[in-house]
Design a protein around this nucleic acid. Structure first.
Lengths: 191, 191
DNA sequence: CACTTTATGACACGCAGTGTCATTATGAAA
DNA sequence: TTTCATAATGACACTGCGTGTCATAAAGTG
């Protein structure tokens, strides 16, 4: 319900896109927030209003993917289906993220940047934390012991993240085979 | 072969121990590097000579554990033993780290601090990177396809890290059962 | 007693991230 | 049109991490 006030004039997507280009050209660490703000024609403080951190400029674009993956979990059948059913749910969640990516080459650029700078890669732990919790609840809600659910969701996220990294490093158009191969290293305990 | 020069007067272990105490008392972010240096009776620059970052004060103490785990991999039998043999190697590596910990309660303190501050937890990705690479080579050197080795080592580290977190959150003296339970979510693909 | 080596810390700098506050642009109401 | 409320904007200042430089002090060696 916006009724009054100055409307938004900054396009966050355009700014993130610009930042990504600057990072690719001059390097992530060599590009300061002030550089980005200057190139975008806005002030540094305004930049921080849309992106809470420098890393957010890179990771922000991955959020729809993560969100879609979480939604797929919620929509999975909620009966007790056993270990095979759980693995099917994990596969569905992993693959669901791919569908919402408008331009795979942009995501590849993001992920390559993340792979190149440890500072960005380590942020995967934070960026994927909500998804880890969601996965944990999904598994625990289907009969998996609480501790196993925690271990499996942690392993799931690490494996799928590695799959995305592997895909980004190459030139294959489709990330799905990478994701499915990554899930092959997982196992639902007690089955 | 040190022949001349002023000998070391700073005890890094004592400084890290002091820092850990300050972090626990006043909070990690509320304790600046200058606070720590002041409490230790040294200068800020000298503090940085022994610890390359604030996080290093916390994570540094975990390095012997990680190193011991890596050594266990090198010492594992190097024949082609199949999937069961590989899992045995992983278990040996995970458990080997426990043996070198002089005082479990200190490690518990470290890990609780890491669990409390996302900034520290996300650093696990960097701190465990050498171990991830070692594990990858171990697996790839025993017949596992290169991509599977990458996925499995990523999942292994995430699961065992989560196991350490779970152990640290509780009061059980022995972390080994947590580690073994975590490895139950892993699987050697193609078997 | 020189001499060499090395720890030490004072000083300064760049940059991330945060807070405050005055200014400006806009739509809505009078 | 004028006034008013809303919200974006950016100027300024500040804390703290991490880095670099450089002069000084404390030891062992010849």
């Amino acid at each position: 319900m916006r009724s009054a006030g100055r409307p938004v004039t900054i396009d966050p997507d355009a700014v993130a896109s610009l930042a990504l280009r600057l990072f690719a050209e001059n390097g992530y660490e060599q590009t300061s927030m002030e550089d980005i703000a200057g190139a975008a024609g806005i002030g540094r403080k305004s930049l921080y209003r849309y992106f809470s951190s420098k890393a957010e400029l890179v990771w922000g674009g991955m959020e729809p993917v993560i969100e879609a993956s979480g939604l797929a979990l919620d929509e999975a059948p909620d009966g007790r289906e056993g270990a095979d059913g759980l693995m099917t749910g994990l596969r569905a969640a992993a693959v669901a993220g791919v569908a919402v990516i408008p331009d795979l080459s942009v995501s590849r650029g993001r992920l390559r940047l993340i792979a190149e700078y440890p500072e960005l890669a380590s942020r995967s732990y934070d960026s994927l934390a909500p998804q880890r919790e969601r996965m944990r609840l999904y598994l625990a809600g289907r009969g998996l012991p609480a501790d196993s659910a925690g271990y499996l969701s942690a392993a799931y996220l690490a494996a799928t993240f590695e799959a995305w990294m592997q895909w980004a490093a190459g030139t294959d158009p489709d990330p799905v085979p990478y994701l499915l191969a990554a899930l092959d290293v997982l196992r639902v305990p007690g089955s």
